[in-house]
Amino acid sequence: MIWPATLLGAVIGLAVASIPGALLGGLLGQVLDRRLRLQSWAALRERLLPGAAQRDEWLLFVLLGRLAKSGGRVLPAHIQQARSEMQRLGLKAEEQRQAIAAFARGKTGRDSLRGPLQRQQARAEMLLRACWRMAWVDGQVDAAERELLNLWGKWLGVSTAAQAQFSDAYAPPRGPLVSTASNAYQRALNLLNVTADAEPAQIKQAYRRLLSRHHPDKLAGSGATPESVREATEHTRELHQAYDLIRQRHGFR
């Protein structure tokens, strides 16, 4: 942990008034560090540089980008889920462009998130629910995703019990798709309406057709209820899972 204002105060004080100045500068800097919760140089830059501060309204998409990249590779399902969140929030074209830029920035992992999150405790549930939806979009939450979510929950002041409730709300239902490998594969084939001997081109075509038909973006502007959007999002996630399983079994990209 680095106390940037403490170090800067000590250095400036040393230059101005030797050792007594360094002690006084360090003491004043420590007060500033504690009051502003500055624990890194990045946090100090957020306070001092106008362009470095995180715009709170796009913080959600920075978080989603960080989550999507935490496993090493951003999947199409992650991108679709980010678009679903834009739809859920009713973002217009320019707002969507800014959200996409925030998502891309989140993938770099360069942003210091502790300060921005601590300022967003009033929106904690909304942020974490969206993050759990993203984490579960590929059907599982890996260790890196869970570690991030637990850390963000701590900074947002959310209890472990509440985090478990958010996770359970978006975990895929237990059923035949995950009961055994053979049952999962057969259900995936049924979901895409293809046979085990189908060619890769046929499987891809069936997947894209169903994805286009059932994607929640299709509900945009139709006055659909939140429940309908959620059902469409769930069905889209099942299609992603089914296609990934079949693709891996058949060995094509």
Rank of each mutant, 00 (worst) to 15 (best):
R105P: 00
G106C: 07
K107G: 07
R110S: 05
S112H: 04
S112M: 02
S112F: 02
L113M: 05
R114A: 06
R114N: 02
G115D: 02
P116S: 01
L117I: 02
L117K: 03
L117W: 06
R119S: 03
Q121I: 03
A122D: 12
E125T: 12
M126G: 10
M126C: 05
L128G: 03
L128K: 06
L128H: 03
R129A: 05
C131L: 10
W132G: 01
R133L: 04
M134W: 08
A135F: 10
A135G: 09
V141Y: 09
A143H: 02
A143V: 02
A144R: 12
E145S: 09
E145I: 05
N150Y: 13
N150F: 13
G153Q: 03
G153I: 09
G153T: 06
W155Q: 04
W155N: 00
W155F: 03
L156W: 10
L156K: 11
V158Y: 00
V158T: 01
T160E: 07
A161F: 00
A164M: 07
A164D: 08
Q165K: 11
Q165L: 08
F166Q: 04
F166R: 02
A171N: 12
A171V: 14
P172E: 14
R174K: 15
R174W: 01
G175N: 04
G175R: 06
L177P: 00
L177N: 04
V178G: 01
A181L: 13
A181M: 12
S182M: 05
S182A: 12
S182R: 11
S182Q: 10
Y185I: 08
R187D: 08
L191T: 14
L192H: 05
N193Q: 15
N193T: 15
V194E: 02
V194N: 03
T195D: 11
A196K: 14
D197K: 15
A198R: 09
E199Q: 15
E199I: 06
P200K: 08
Q202W: 00
Q202E: 07
Q202V: 07
K204F: 11
Q205C: 00
Q205H: 05
A206C: 04
Y207A: 03
L210I: 06
R213L: 11
H215M: 04
H215V: 06
D217A: 03
S222G: 13
S222L: 15
S222Q: 15
G223T: 11
G223M: 10
A224E: 08
V229E: 13
V229W: 10
E231S: 14
T233V: 12
T233M: 06
E234I: 14
E234V: 14
T236W: 01
T236N: 07
T236A: 15
T236R: 13
E238N: 13
L239V: 08
Q241E: 10
Q241I: 11
D244Q: 13
L245D: 04
L245V: 14
L245R: 15
